[in-house]
Amino acid sequence: MIINKSEIAGLLDNLVKEYRVYAPVQKDGIVTFEQINEGTQAKPGATSKKPPKEILFPQSEELFNYQVDSQGLRMEDKIDDTKSVAFGVRPCDAKSMMLLDNVFHNDEYEDVYYTTRRKNTLIISVGCNQPASTCFCTSVGSSPFDTDGSDVLLTDIGDSYLAEAITEQGKEFLCKLNLPASDDQAKTKAEETKKQAQLTSEVDTTGIKEKLDDMFDHPYWESLYEKCLGCGACTYLCPTCHCFDIADEAKDCAGCRVRNWDSCMFPLFTLHGSGHNPRTSGKERWRQRAMHKFNYFVERYNASACVGCGRCIKNCPVNLDIRQVIADIKAQDTGSEVS
């Protein structure tokens, strides 16, 4: 189906009546996913500074309220099942949601806050005609027009978007919009667009999981972290990072339980009550970050926890580039491939 670019704002205006609509919005030079009230606010095709994971997994979220008084205990959880549409998601970010699904619905437990939002949110992605120089999605098993995680994928073919339904929900959604069918010309154009979308950045990740299997005690980690500030920029802005903290905000016996993003790059993240800390320096923390993304996550869920979006590269205050880290890891001698 075809959506004319000039009709996007109107289409979003209509959606807003029925759904909560999130779209990339530019404010003060920074693009973030926000709930919009009017179609004109949206800036489809822009890559957001903060990843849209925050739609499903907000940076700060109240899990439940409670109150204990003479009448006993009352608790109220706040599970958000508003029908929502995330419009203008990047394919890498859509893919990251599939990875997060593994985490928030594991073999034993279901995080109903996340899964309820996930079930009620349609993901409409826009493919990347012009990947940035920091994008390396094709090196980590994705691509500028990857459909994983999207319900609908839009391809920018100039004056309009070609819309493809990826899932059943996506199909139903598109049907309701009553859009004109795509002609052969548009289809050909879309195919060409997809083909010409070239990545300029590539890094060889083959065998990195196995390499890291033998690298826990490798001296490489001693030098890797040296310039790192131990801040939360790379992890907070990463679409696949999912660590969080749980805290209570309360006065006397009434309050709420809040969860906030947390980061493995912070020293307090693993500090025991006894004062012992299994990750004492940036060395252990950077190793955890690299291992989690390219070894532990692969071991658990059979995919690397990096979709190659490049946000950590662009936003690291000291220009510590994860592509270089991958390349360095690959280049280390682990002694295991001698024979």
């Binding site: 003060d28 920074i30 903060k50 940076q59 500030l229 131990g230 801040c231 939360g232 920029a233 907070y236 802005l237 980061s263 912070f266 307090l268 205050p317 000291v318």
Partner: peptide, 27 residues
């Protein structure tokens, strides 16, 4: 308006040569 943008990544604090408390009051 400026503070609304903050994501509490603490990059500012950690980049500052003069911020070196063992435990920052925010933590």
């Amino acid at each position: 308006k400026e503070m609304e943008k903050c994501i509490r990544c603490y990059a500012c604090r950690n980049a500052c040569p003069m911020c070196y408390c063992d435990t920052c009051f925010v933590d």
